[in-house]
């Protein structure tokens, strides 16, 4: 299963980014292969509609789950339409790896 996590840098050790639409990086993690890949968030540089731009990218990646600090109304609508699950970091989620672990342990907030 593919999850995408908003992050401040392109690595598993990177701090997560609690901003969704304007996070710098989106880290894609595949729980079946344990492979990961980082993408620059196309929303980060947009003057408007950053949440929709980031959401469109994630929809196009065919991710099943997106993990961030919070989701705006527009991004939420796009994810609902695409049946992509939205999960939120807990207060103790600090790195991308922890976000993955917390997802597997089902600790992330819904």
């Amino acid at each position: 299963m593919k999850l995408i996590i908003s992050a401040q840098n392109p690595s598993l050790e990177a701090q997560v980014d609690r901003r969704f639409g304007r996070c710098m990086w989106l880290v894609l993690f595949d729980t079946e292969t344990n492979q990961w890949e980082a993408f620059q968030n196309p929303g980060a540089s947009q003057s408007g509609g950053a949440g929709v731009a980031a959401a469109q990218f994630i929809v196009d990646q065919k991710a099943k789950v997106v993990v961030s600090g919070d989701f705006g109304p527009n991004a939420s609508r796009a994810f609902q339409a695409a049946k992509i699950e939205m999960r939120r970091f807990t207060d103790s989620t600090t790195t991308v790896q922890e976000a993955v672990d917390h997802f597997i342990q089902d600790k992330l907030l819904k």
Binding site: G48, G49, V52, Q56, N74, R77, A81
Partner: peptide, 23 residues
């Protein structure tokens, strides 16, 4: 339409085009 919108007021999910009126 999604591609030309500078304001990201449109998104494509499968065969559906979503419109975001406030954008």
């Amino acid at each position: 339409c999604v591609e030309v919108c500078e304001f990201h007021a449109l998104a494509q999910v499968g065969k559906n085009i979503l419109v975001f009126p406030q954008l």
